[in-house]
Nucleic acid binder design. Structure first.
Length: 230
DNA sequence: GACCAGGCACATC
DNA sequence: GATGTGCATGGT
């Protein structure tokens, strides 16, 4: 199947890529986390860190009790750092968790329902102003904790898209984000699962160059050198 | 033992 | 503005 050629422009290509990934990996049901607050905590803890390590850290936080914005703020930073130690960068992440918790308390009394009236662009600006919250973390929070139609771009996405020739190798965050948001419907469910599919692909197949023979990206590959690989 | 994982801030040029 | 570096644990 020559998907790239048959697709009706970028929009069709991006949808075809999604369908191929979905066919291979199934619906991902993201984000892992019981509550929006847990999603926010996970978004901080998973920065440059394997999710299995994040799970340990979150389990520690829960078993300690007071797993809430107010609860984490009450903890001494050293104590908090000790609890999240398995997630790595624990000193930095303890400060980052405190910063986002303080923001949540100040902004809405830690009641995330009150965010519903706030425009997405305004929320994004506020999140990015918090130390330790960069574009990917902010957008993960917006999409997975607050149900905003914002596309999350990660290293896997840029690596894979660059490798199949759809974007320049490792194009900057907002260039890649615009590619998706300008060419797809602003659909929370689609953006949710699409990002999760990229992560599934990254974990599964895209660490090698050229793309390996079993990789679903072969079918949508625009890079002759890679697509010829068997 | 080396490399990588669902980044980000800061220093330096 | 672009590039380099520190942050740190745990799995492969």
């Amino acid at each position: 199947m020559d998907v790239a050629a048959s697709a009706a422009g970028l929009s069709g290509t991006l949808l075809d890529i999604y369908l191929l990934l979905h066919k291979r990996f199934g619906h991902r049901n993201w984000w892992p986390g019981d509550t929006p607050f847990e999603v926010i905590v996970g978004a901080i803890l998973t920065q440059n860190t394997a999710w299995t390590n994040v799970e340990r850290a979150i389990a520690n936080l829960k078993s300690n009790g007071g797993f809430s914005a107010h609860g984490l703020l009450k903890l001494e930073t050293a104590k908090l750092a000790g609890l999240i130690r398995p997630s790595g960068y624990f000193n930095q992440k303890a400060l980052r968790l405190k910063a986002i918790c303080q923001y949540l308390v100040d902004r809405c009394g830690a009641d995330l329902e009150l965010f519903k009236a706030v425009p997405t662009d305004e929320l994004r600006k506020e999140l990015l102003a918090i130390t330790g919250i960069g574009p990917e973390t902010a957008d993960s929070i917006l999409l997975y904790a607050l149900d905003r139609p914002v596309f999350v771009v990660d290293t896997y996405t840029r690596r894979a898209l660059g490798r199949i020739g759809l974007i320049a190798e490792m194009a900057d965050y907002h260039t890649v984000q615009r590619l998706f948001m300008d060419n797809l419907a602003l659909d929370v469910e689609l953006f949710n699962d699409y990002h999760a599919q990229w992560v599934a692909l990254g974990k599964d197949h895209c660490r090698q160059k050229p793309v390996c023979g079993g990789c679903p990206m072969r079918e949508i590959c625009l890079n002759k050198e890679v697509s010829d690989h068997t």
